[in-house]
Design a protein around this nucleic acid. Structure first.
Lengths: 193, 193
DNA sequence: TCAAAACATTAAACTAGTTTAAAAAATCAA
DNA sequence: TTGATTTTTTAAACTAGTTTAATGTTTTGA
């Protein structure tokens, strides 16, 4: 049940077998049906999650009612609102299942326990946060410098397995454009081929 | 000499006096004159830095020659290319002093030493990276959802001490707009008052 | 299986932001 | 202090992306 999780952790850092067992036992499996929420705006995020099956979107709704997707998470990805989780303040984000999903959750308390008792876990999450941060820096630079068209092309190339599971509305909300404009871009690309 | 650094660290985590001393002794002070570089594209970033005096810009130059500012760093801020530093690959960034500056630098080797021998340091950098990541997530959402005008207004409100030390060209490169358009925005705001 | 809902496309008018270039203002270096 | 360089502003033509609304297409759920 936690095989994928163990594999994911092993890719980031090396734990002994007992450390791995002890840490993974802190997780609990939860099923989230399509269109239901793991987290809503205003709630304090009390978990960190690892997607075993399915697809989530993590997004914000601005004061005009527009949604901005911070990221998607499929199998083998982590999800949380790191801000709300660490500061224990109400979240500004929604985490919604786009497909029927299964996620392994660790509570704040158990994660603190792991930090205190399994020193390598501190390192694991430092390394993971660093990697996530680097990826977001790259995306920030891309958003500052590239047109929506090339951002779309690169997103489609980088995550081909993801894009076919997403609606254009969701992709547009990730790219920071309207779905109408995304439709224009797709038409333009298709006509080039 | 390291008083500001100690204060900054203490704000993130609690170290004993000896831990603090031992860690801070790993840093070396370096002066960087205005317009010179702490890091250039293509170099491997071998340090993590803490700004004691002055002002830096961390930026990328895209293939069309346009500069995108990832962030600025004044007194009491940390600077590095976390990607290049951790993966030991050539950097895609420039770090340039905008004013005559002084930084406290710790080498990769000494930071690894600290991670290995001062367990709380692992936590310190996990917490700092998390905070930096949260700030970047907020900026990402703002860039996806807000107009350049409100991004400018909010930047000016959030960092009043910074904006008066920066040229419009640099602010525009941070906001992701041209300096011509920033000039229009400033004119519009000024006429409203 | 069919009606309703959600999604994708198209078009046309619009606005936010760019480009180029030139002039004015500020800063820098000798 | 002055000439050179950099920065800021202005203007005008342009392009990337939005808005609204209508139409067609796909998905959903009872």
């Amino acid at each position: 049940m936690t095989a994928l999780l163990k594999q994911n952790i092993a890719a980031h850092t090396s734990l002994s077998e007992t450390e791995m067992e002890e840490f993974c036992n802190l997780f609990e499996l939860k099923s989230i049906p399509k269109k239901s929420f793991l987290l809503r705006e205003g709630e304090v995020c009390k978990f960190e999650g690892f997607v075993v099956k399915g697809l989530f979107r993590v997004y914000h709704i601005d004061k005009n009612g527009f949604e901005q997707v911070l990221y998607f998470a499929i199998e083998n990805w982590w999800i949380t609102d790191i801000d709300s989780f660490t500061t224990e303040t109400p979240s500004q984000l929604f985490i919604e299942a786009i497909e029927d999903s299964e996620v392994l959750l660790i509570s704040k308390k158990d994660k603190e326990f792991a930090y205190a008792n399994l020193p390598k876990i501190e390192k694991l999450f430092r390394v993971m946060t660093q990697k996530t941060h680097v990826a977001l820096q790259r995306r920030m630079i891309d958003n500052l410098s590239k047109t929506a068209e090339s951002r779309y092309i690169e997103f489609a190339e980088k995550y081909p397995q993801l894009i076919q599971r997403l609606s254009n509305i969701q992709v547009a909300a990730y790219l920071g454009i309207t779905n109408v404009f995304l439709s224009n871009i797709r038409k333009k690309i298709a006509s080039k081929k």
